[in-house]
């Protein structure tokens, strides 16, 4: 029983990261009907951004309290990653909006490869860990080991996902995003600048990935290739949840976290990807639109 609870905690921790990244895939798909395959690498860049911001702030002789450094790291990583994602959309995807969808997808793959190799060339392949910005305190609750990092990851993920969900449901921008997702052609007639909403979507989605990136960096090692592996799992999370659906992406992220941790706990770790993808295929056979997904209605061009 303790083992199960322990693994559940680990699954929630990893699932939080997958959910945060999955949001970016699902939001961009929702309004552009495009899979942004560079998103995993944007997540990777955000982790490195967090690494440099935290290193810089710690090296700075101001002796800021750790909590301040952590919050600043998070915010600056979110900001920097948003700028990068909005820039990528402007220069790489926007010119292709009228082109066949495959062009944008291939471009996204190219952008991802660029980010990966750029990181590899400039920073190097060696794995790194975020400098310690969170005091590590280990609690033992009835034989289950819980660390302050684990609690922080779960709490911050839940908080930012709640904020995002509220933005999408309650604000004018969120309504505009949902309207674009339903029928992009009519949105300008409401006086809404569609391009600006698309930029905000990229900014929000990549900020979520950056939260995931910094949280990932305080718990696991980072390397330039992590964007591919983590990105794939997050993408599958979005598909499992029902791509285009925000709450679906959150649920999907936690499901994939559970699959990964529990498969690795009970089966040889080489089975992990095999079982996860087999489950995904099975789900898609019975529910092709994912758990919360709606049948895709093709938009009028």
């Amino acid at each position: 029983m303790r083992f199960i609870i322990q693994q559940t905690l680990n699954a929630l921790q990893l699932g939080s990261v997958y959910a945060l990244i999955a949001l970016g895939y699902t939001m961009v798909y929702g309004i552009l009907r495009m899979i942004n395959f560079a998103h995993g690498d944007i997540f990777m860049v955000s982790t490195y951004l967090g690494f440099f911001v935290a290193s810089f702030l710690l090296g700075w002789a101001l002796h800021l309290p750790m909590a301040v450094i952590f919050v600043l790291t998070l915010l600056l990583a979110m900001f920097g990653t948003s700028l990068l994602a909005v820039f990528i959309e402007r220069v790489a995807y926007k010119p292709l909006r009228q082109a066949p969808r495959i062009s944008a997808v291939i471009t996204a793959l190219g952008v991802g490869l660029f980010l990966e190799n750029f990181t590899l060339a400039t920073i190097g392949p060696e794995p790194r860990i975020l400098p310690q910005v969170v005091p590590v305190i280990n609690f033992n609750i009835g034989g289950v080991a819980v660390s302050s990092i684990q609690i922080l990851i779960l709490a911050i993920s839940a908080l930012v996902m709640f904020i995002l969900d509220t933005i999408v449901r309650r604000t004018m921008t969120g309504m505009a995003m949902r309207a674009i997702s339903f029928d992009k052609t009519v949105v300008p007639l409401m006086g809404i600048p569609v391009d600006r909403i698309i930029s905000i979507t990229f900014a929000l989605g990549s900020s979520m990935a950056a939260v995931g990136g910094v949280l990932y960096g305080i718990a696991y090692m980072m390397d330039p290739y992590m964007g591919i592996r983590i990105g794939w799992w997050a993408f599958i999370s979005a598909v499992v949840g029902g791509i285009g659906n925000i709450r679906g992406a959150m649920i999907g992220g936690y499901i994939l976290g559970f699959v990964e941790i529990f498969v690795a706990a009970f089966l040889p770790s080489t089975y992990r990807d095999f079982v996860a993808f087999a489950l995904l295929l099975l789900l898609l056979v019975f529910k092709p639109t994912g758990i919360l997904g709606m049948p895709v209605v093709e938009q009028k061009v």
């Binding site: 004018m172 309504m175 505009a176 949902r178 309207a179 997702s181 339903f182 029928d183 409401m190 809404i192």
Partner: peptide, 12 residues
């Protein structure tokens, strides 16, 4: 916008 409420349509 079929997935939004009547009020949300007007608000937009």
């Amino acid at each position: 916008f079929g997935t939004l409420t009547v009020m949300e349509n007007l608000k937009l």
